[in-house]
Simulated assay, not measured.
Amino acid sequence: MVCVALLSNPRSTGNVAMLPRIRKFCAQRADIFHYEVEDVSQIGDALQTIARVKPQILVINGGDGTVQAALTELHHGQQFPDGAPPVAVLPNGKTNLIALDLGAEGDPIAALERIMEIVRTDLSDHIVRRELIALSGGDANGRPVLGMFLGGAGLADSILYCRHKIYPLGLPNGFSHLITAIAVVFSALFRIKARFLPPQARPISVSVVHEGQIQGKFALLMVTTLERLLLKSQTDLGATDAGPLKLMMVEQKPLTLLRAFWASLFGRLGTSSLAGVHLSHGNEIRIEGDRSSVILDGELFETHNERPIVLTHTTPVPFLSLAA
């Protein structure tokens, strides 16, 4: 009997070295169905096949972009007529925000062993529910794209800077993220433009339905349904019933950036009031600007003057948390 279905993306950064170990682990167990795709465009067909074995848990082995593609297919597709099984995520890729939120850290094999232990117990103790962000508009053509973390304004530029300038140096992920954060603050404080530094943020307008509009230049724009981020930061943003989309924006001003950077080092960014830091919840968020970038779980989108990006949310989706 198949208990766990594992969907792997061999092109994910972490799988270059890890996949042989995962293949060996799965080959030794008859209760794991392992399916590998050659491209994220094959994930829909992969889920059709996986649905036939009726797994108790669907495990995704890839970076946040792979998870995003799988969640989008699960939401729009009809692969599981009786409802999709809870989703677990192995720690993989560069940032692992979704895996981190679900308590999956460290060695992917250890996480997979933990999943196999949990599936033989009462799953209800480990099921958590998260709404997904549904992105439409901008240059996102067709059906909405689903994810759990969106970075915009200066944050999107910083993610692209880290991806194209820092990761190629081959440094540890945590050190790469720290260097990127320092470069962002340095560039914003001294207003220096250089090819080796992140670009300056462009002006944008952000609207939370029923709460109003904020305009300006922001070093950070974040929308998420996650509860835990990098550097052990929490995303409480104040308890409210206003909506599941959590919004944080940090103005691109020297003192604001210094305060926000210091708070993030201690995991307090978003949990206390800071001048120039805007916190909100909502059911619908609109982002407008001239070719301002946003990144939803690794996938890049751009706003246009007459085509804003619109964020809404889905109904709660079951996930498997590996936390004790």
Rank of each mutant, 00 (worst) to 15 (best):
V184L: 05
G212F: 12
R202I: 01
F186H: 11
G212L: 09
F196M: 10
A194N: 14
V185N: 01
Q200W: 07
I204Q: 03
P203Q: 03
F218S: 03
L189N: 13
V185I: 13
L229N: 01
K217Q: 13
H210C: 05
G216R: 02
T224Y: 08
T224K: 05
L231F: 14
G212Y: 10
A188Y: 10
S187W: 08
L230T: 03
L230F: 12
T225H: 07
M222D: 00
T225E: 04
E211F: 12
A183S: 15
Q234S: 12
F196H: 13
V185A: 13
L231G: 00
F196Y: 14
I204C: 13
V184R: 02
R191M: 06
F190T: 08
S233K: 04
F196D: 06
L197Q: 10
T224V: 06
S207M: 09
Q213Y: 04
V184P: 03
Q215C: 09
A201L: 00
Q234N: 10
G216P: 02
S207G: 07
L231W: 12
L226V: 02
V206G: 02
R191T: 06
F190S: 05
V223Q: 04
I192H: 08
G212K: 09
I192M: 13
L189V: 13
H210K: 15
L226A: 03
L221I: 00
L229R: 01
G216M: 03
T224W: 07
G216D: 00
L231D: 10
Q200S: 14
A201W: 03
H210Y: 10
P199C: 12
E227P: 00
A194G: 12
A219E: 02
R195L: 07
L231N: 14
A188Q: 11
L197H: 09
R191S: 14
H210R: 14
P199I: 13
E211Q: 15
T225G: 04
K193N: 12
R228H: 14
V209W: 07
I214A: 07
F218Y: 13
A219T: 11
V185R: 00
L220H: 05
V206I: 15
R195E: 14
L189T: 12
F218I: 06
A219H: 02
H210F: 09
S205N: 02
I192A: 06
S205E: 10
E211D: 12
E227L: 03
L189I: 09
R202W: 03
V208Q: 11
K217S: 07
L231Y: 13
Q213N: 10
E227A: 10
V206H: 08
E211A: 15
L226K: 03
I214H: 09
P203D: 06
F190G: 01
F196K: 02
A219N: 07
L230Y: 08
